[in-house]
Design a protein around this nucleic acid. Structure first.
Lengths: 348, 348
DNA sequence: TTGTACGCGTTATCAA
DNA sequence: TTGATAACGCGTACAA
């Protein structure tokens, strides 16, 4: 038992086990060249003293922190949280600490990213959903700090992504297949200039597919605002008040789609009768409300991203360094009128 | 500019400014006893070299990390995320790193909490929504590591809470005032044994108020399950299939209330016509779906918790060490039939 | 196989 | 007002 008072150091362990600190260190780090007998003695001493090494001291000695920095855009979006969960699960399993950096604007982004290349700050860095400039990336490669990108991409940097354009195409195909010929789109505006591009990429794919169907994509009623359900409701209103409102709306996220649905409800309208609606992400809320959506593997993106970083940390060169995860279209009751509103599955 | 290659240390700065490292350290930490002239020279050198101190080294020297550990239950619940945002905002502002510990079961909890008292691990700790034992707390007080509790409480430890019983009473009063006389309750079951107690406390208050109205509280149809909308939908079904189903349901959280609402919708039922429904938390989803709720200041709880920790870190003794934040009942369309489904406000 | 001593980058103490 | 130097706790060459 660690008695209150003085911190127990590697020296105390060494003394108790009648060995040198070097030996204790060797045991601690699973290095060979220690006889079974001494190893056992050392382990016993460690246990008896309740000793655990100081992250600070070992980090300083090794020349690098053992924490992983995870940089996320101001956590307001559920999708980011799910990715983060995935990251945490993997890192926690291998005993790495996760330091969370939430950035709400460019200044914060640059301030944090500018210093995170330092190995004393973090052993490695995972950036989620934030666009990085070449300069940012070069800082990292210059000092050799492993960097992984999740839901964003820079050529040459290991990353986990989905094909947002393809997702847009999938949404369009689904709606076209149902006979729709006029469309609205509700997306994000990147007010904080953090370089979010998924929304516009999804629109690109959506437009391209519409055009292929012989429809003028410039006729899509496009509205953008901050990423929130409330804002999306307002944008939906603006689209539906058009003289010739579209029959279908593609929202760039489930959060926004849920806002559209709430607007419809408030006006006594229904989907897909009055308006077909499709979202993006595959969040629980979409299942709950029966919103058709293009689902992406959010949790998995976090897991994969963290695993990628682990490889980098181990000095390996990840084979498919830039990974593209698959999307799935989940048809539900906001587009397919027959579809029963599923009695939400028990497992979350 | 920090040239790629060697790390620039306090020694480099000292050399460039023609002073001793002691002086640089003094400037760095804003200590007095440095002439304006030398301070200026040092600052210039720091700037020219792009120097910033090593957290590892200063931590080791000072004997404690400058990171704050935040322990949260497996981040699946939106309420926890909002609290976390509040915490991050405050800590980031003062330059403290936030190390996130997500615990999904007792083993994880004990493993993390057991080591977090060490000042080399964290300068201070904030525990969110997880019940701590006396032993846990004593470990912290023994070594003097500041500890703050958010949404949980232990006598003598600084904490931020709401009065869950009072919240339950508020919900009951609201429903009683609307003429309801039969009730259902949907709450959490703490399957992972992390000591969540809000749900049962809310039920206690709810029951007490019901009893005061002359109704036998044992007649409340109580159902509990894991915290998820889907599970809540299943529980709602079980309640509504009773031979004499209640006319109102109190869900222990908005997430669960949204599950109940989705179940109603899937059955073609409406609120409050077929069933009055009230939730808890005041999450955006409740506004979106028009669910009446008992709102608690989630973001603020994080902010206050972090501020409390800052005081502790500064050696101050927070005056009301155990803070109870106010609750507000927000009547919406799942209980008050007249209430229009609000066209969700623009600001989130 | 094991012990010793130095270095990691800061802070803090003590002289100057 | 300053500079030199001893910790802080650990990893690791190097010596034994």
């Amino acid at each position: 038992m660690a008695v209150a008072g003085q911190r127990v150091s590697i020296f105390d362990v060494a003394k108790r086990a009648s060995v040198g600190v070097g030996t204790v260190s060797r045991v601690l780090n699973g290095r060979e060249g220690v006889s079974a007998a001494t190893r056992k003695r050392v382990l016993a001493a460690i246990d008896a003293l309740g000793y655990h090494p100081s992250r600070l001291a070992s980090g300083l000695s090794r020349g690098r922190s053992d924490a992983v920095a995870v940089v996320v855009p101001f956590i307001t979006s559920p999708s980011v949280v799910v990715r983060l969960e995935g990251i945490l699960e993997v890192l926690d399993n291998v005993g790495l600490n996760t330091v969370l950096y939430s950035v709400g604007n460019r200044q914060q982004r640059d301030r944090h990213l500018g210093v995170l290349g330092d190995r004393h700050e973090a052993a490695g860095v995972i950036v989620v959903s934030i666009r990085l400039s070449r300069q940012h990336v070069e800082r990292f490669s210059a000092v050799g700090t492993p960097l992984v990108l999740v839901d964003t991409r820079v050529a040459g940097v290991p990353s986990i992504e989905v094909d947002n354009r393809e997702g847009g195409r999938m949404a369009a195909s689904h709606l076209l297949g149902l006979g729709h010929r006029s469309f609205g789109f509700i997306g994000d505006i990147d007010r904080k200039h953090l370089g979010f591009s998924s929304s516009s990429e999804r629109l690109e794919g959506f437009s391209a597919r519409i055009a292929e169907a012989g429809i003028d994509p410039s006729r899509i009623a496009v509205r953008s605002g901050i990423h929130s359900a409330g804002e999306a409701a307002v944008l939906a209103a603006s689209i539906l008040e058009l003289v010739e409102p579209p029959t279908a709306i593609f929202a760039a996220s489930d959060t926004q789609a849920s806002g559209v649905l709430s607007y419809l409800k408030s006006k006594g309208l229904t989907a897909p009768g009055d308006l077909a609606l499709i979202g993006f992400d595959g969040l629980e809320v979409s299942a709950l409300l029966g919103i058709t959506t293009v689902a992406q593997p959010l949790f998995e993106s976090g897991v994969r991203g963290a695993q990628l970083l682990l490889q980098l940390l181990a000095g390996e060169v990840p084979d498919p360094g830039e990974l593209v995860l698959p999307l799935r279209l989940l048809p539900r009751s906001t587009t397919v009128s027959g579809a029963s509103i599923e009695p939400v599955s028990r497992s979350p």
